[in-house]
Amino acid sequence: MSKPTKITNDIRRLRFDADEMTQAELAKRIGVTRQTVLAIEQGRYSPSLEVAFKIASVFKVPLEQVFQYPLNDE
């Protein structure tokens, strides 16, 4: 079983800023299930680059405003 990802994200805040966009709506726009959006949002699943870019595109922000990867915490 894979370890939980170290990648963090701001999807919850971005959804809130986008008129409280629902997980279902985001899922529909990026072509995944609501459960996958939930898993990404909770940091349980790291999406593919394609899905990551689609999420950033939905919120019209650069990728690094959606996902962050801490490099200096070893």
Binding site: V32, T36, P47
Partner: peptide
């Protein structure tokens, strides 16, 4: 929900 097997 149905028939939409996504990447996960």
């Amino acid at each position: 929900e149905f028939g939409n097997e996504d990447e996960r």
